[in-house]
Design a protein around this nucleic acid. Structure first.
Lengths: 247, 247
DNA sequence: ATCTCCATGCCACATTGTGGAACGGTGTGC
DNA sequence: GCACACCGTTCCACAATGTGGCATGGAGAT
């Protein structure tokens, strides 16, 4: 369904570039203006877009999208439960904290952020996705998936993102074992170079991994000596979120 | 664009009923299963839907939607700024707190919530919309719109939702004047019967209204004598959010 | 083993979306 | 103050695209 696909791509582009004009979008996609225009009008009729308040020929995302959220965030229980613990973790370590959820078995998606106040910091937008096998949050979750699910992920192959990425299934399985022992996962330049993170999983009552909290920092501030202590702190934050969520 | 419209409706239905099957959706819309199926597959290819983790023939919202948010929430500045003040307000009054943003000049949309722990409480889902002229949050915002914008809203007519709704433009204008004087707006059964709220606006530096914080409670707990005090508390919370947002 | 229900795949048809061209309005530079 | 360039919007003939009835295959119940 070409028109549907295109409409969603346009919707995403509006989200990134808002407030944006027809012409800008047409240029961005190399599409005729009339096609883009028609799509924008349809999206507005559906309530997903609207004219910008200042300039009525510019387009913005409407608030309808807020009613559409992944089940894990429905009623915002995870979200609400994670807030204060995340803030406190941020204040304790003065590094950026991310809350990511598992999307299918595909990837981790950043759903919330608490920024530190340092001049140099890592940056991940809400909605950004990252691979399971090459990030701290991903490995924290992966370590608690059922064996069959892990196999499914490995079967898709382990793409490399630089020197440090683990691309060997056996090595990865060994590391997941380590993650289970430690209670936290570590990523040093395995996905984005210069970016390190330490993450702990957020589990359902039955042990199903749902999400992960992660402390993210530039490689220059990663101190291996403080790793066990930091790991424990992150794991405690995750435990607190689990506690709040389940009452 | 019929297919686009239909796809978005289906997406919204999945959001509400997830995890949901093809058959359920087909019945819900009175559409052929093949049509629904094709749409679901397209939405999956776009990354907006995915198969449920437990039951692969059930469908859920994918995390892609999280990358698409209204400009007012981009970088989550409003969101992040509002959190702690909302929590504190909730703890102070032990009633449910809502954060709503203005969507175009159409309606207010609930974007965040802090629930109280009472057995009887009001309930508004994140993403719910409500009219500007018949809610506390709406009137708080309306009171700070430019005259031309207010006229535009009034021109669309003031729909009644029961006895208490203000449907006379002159009366509404007078009330907005009062709201500006008080610094907060009140809604007693004007939209949903039995539901009352007190709201204060969140303004941009230039005075443009962006959102509102509201304390929401059942009519049975609404005490007119305590209104001025409650109003002041809500207005203080709004002021604090503004302060945090603008640094 | 038979029946029913369901998700999914197929394909001829006409409905639907396409995109080039034209229109009207706005702002810029000569 | 005129001409030009640019932009958002509208129109319409054409055919590409989505439609939905039907067929298939698998799962679960009787």
């Amino acid at each position: 369904m070409k028109s549907v696909m295109r409409s969603l791509r346009i919707l995403e582009a509006v989200a990134q570039q808002q407030p944006v004009t027809v012409g800008e979008l047409a240029k961005h996609f190399g599409l005729p203006k009339s096609t883009v225009q028609r799509t924008l009008v349809t999206l507005r009729e559906a309530g997903w877009l609207r004219a910008s308040r200042g300039d009525t020929t510019r387009w913005e995302i409407g608030a309808r999208v807020l009613a559409v959220r992944p089940a894990a965030l429905q009623g915002s229980s995870l979200f609400a439960a994670a807030r204060e613990p995340m803030m406190r973790l941020r204040d304790a370590v003065n590094e950026t904290i991310h809350l990511s959820v598992l999307d299918g078995l595909q990837s981790m998606v950043v759903v919330d952020r608490a920024d530190c106040d340092r001049a140099v910091r890592t940056f991940h937008q809400i909605g950004d996705t990252s691979p399971l096998h090459a990030t701290a949050a991903g490995k924290a979750v992966l370590a608690h998936l059922r064996a069959g699910e892990v196999a499914e992920v490995l079967a898709r192959g382990l793409q490399g993102y630089g020197e440090a990425t683990i691309t060997d299934p056996d090595l990865l399985r060994a590391e997941l074992e380590q993650v289970r022992r430690d209670g936290y996962a570590v990523n040093r330049n395995q996905f984005r170079v210069e970016v390190c993170a330490i993450a702990a999983p957020i589990l359902e009552r039955d042990g199903t991994p749902l999400a992960a909290v992660a402390v993210s920092m530039p490689d220059s501030r990663f101190d291996p000596d403080r790793l066990p202590e930091l790991g424990r702190t992150v794991a405690e934050t995750a435990a607190e979120i689990i506690g709040r969520r389940l009452g």
